[in-house]
């Protein structure tokens, strides 16, 4: 699956996009965040405060319990500040 990072999450992770292949027991967005946080110090720092991380699955807002699967586009970003 493809994971996109925006704003300060992108800066902390160090890349804006990466392709990942999590193990089969990673079935929800929350489990994916736990798995990603273990990838590097930057990932851990970006995902430390879960209350500041918003999730979109295939360009739709989703919660931590939402299922994730191979081929999904997952985006992780801070609360939005446009307008």
């Amino acid at each position: 699956m493809k994971v996109l990072y925006f704003a300060w999450l992108r800066q902390r992770v160090g890349v804006g996009e990466e392709t990942v292949n999590p193990p089969a027991d990673v079935a929800t967005a929350g489990q994916l965040l736990d798995w990603l946080a273990a990838k590097s110090a930057g990932h851990a720092e970006a995902l430390k405060n879960r209350s500041l991380v918003r999730i979109a699955i295939n360009q739709e807002f989703a919660g931590l319990d939402a299922p994730v699967k191979t081929g999904d586009e997952i985006a992780l970003f801070p609360p939005v500040t446009g307008g």
Binding site: A75, F77, P78, V80, T81, G83
Partner: peptide, 23 residues
């Protein structure tokens, strides 16, 4: 609704450095 739902983020360039605007 745009301000709370559309995925935009503002980065301010201030005299004290760069700062992401908080929601």
């Amino acid at each position: 609704w745009l301000k709370t739902k559309a995925p935009f983020w503002k980065l301010e360039d201030t005299r004290e450095g760069e700062r992401w605007v908080a929601a």
